[in-house]
């Protein structure tokens, strides 16, 4: 797809130019905030789930404002479900790696100092895995529901 600035002038798909312009400005900040929530999940409120929801919201916003074609060109249905599976797999693999520390899900990495960014062992890694899983899954659910809904309403017409 082309530059997002050009897309916002294209009136054939998506919402009005006002919505498109605002979303274009806000999108990157939402994405950034999502990453912040994920990476600081182990020392501040938040974490993988909350951050993942925020990440998926940025894609949902893209889809609502610019239409499904633009959003699907950025992250297709296939890759959404692939990332969904890979995130879940990463979490399970982290759990099994914990067996090296003696138990399933053991926190086997160096714990670091409390309150610093690099600390808490596997918890940030788990947060990242969960975030990938949740963001991709929510986006895939949104794609699924919106496409199904459209098929149903088009059949009625």
């Amino acid at each position: 797809m082309n530059n997002i600035r050009e897309l916002s002038k294209d009136e054939s798909s998506g919402m009005t130019i006002i919505v498109k312009t605002i979303s274009r400005l806000v999108l990157s900040f939402i994405l950034l905030f999502g990453f912040y929530i994920i990476l600081y999940g182990h020392i501040t409120p938040g974490g993988g789930f909350a951050g993942g929801v925020i990440l998926s919201i940025s894609y949902v916003l893209l889809m609502l404002a610019f239409g499904s074609k633009v959003a699907l060109a950025k992250l297709s249905n296939f890759w959404a479900s692939m990332l969904d599976n890979l995130g879940a797999l990463a979490f399970i693999v982290i759990g099994f790696l914990g067996l090296t520390g003696g138990y399933f899900m053991t926190n086997f990495i160096w714990h670091g100092h409390p309150g610093q960014l690099i600390s808490a062992g596997i918890i940030p890694l788990c947060n990242i895995a969960i975030a990938i899983k949740v963001s991709a899954a929510l986006y895939a659910i949104f794609i699924g529901l919106s496409i199904y809904g459209r098929i149903v309403t088009e059949e009625e017409k």
């Binding site: 599976n85 797999l89 399970i92 759990g95």
Partner: peptide, 17 residues
């Protein structure tokens, strides 16, 4: 014991991939 849950859970994901 954890394998009894871990294997089906992991394989359900690997299967989809």
């Amino acid at each position: 014991l954890p394998l009894l849950v871990g294997i089906p859970l992991g394989m359900s994901v690997i299967n989809l991939i």
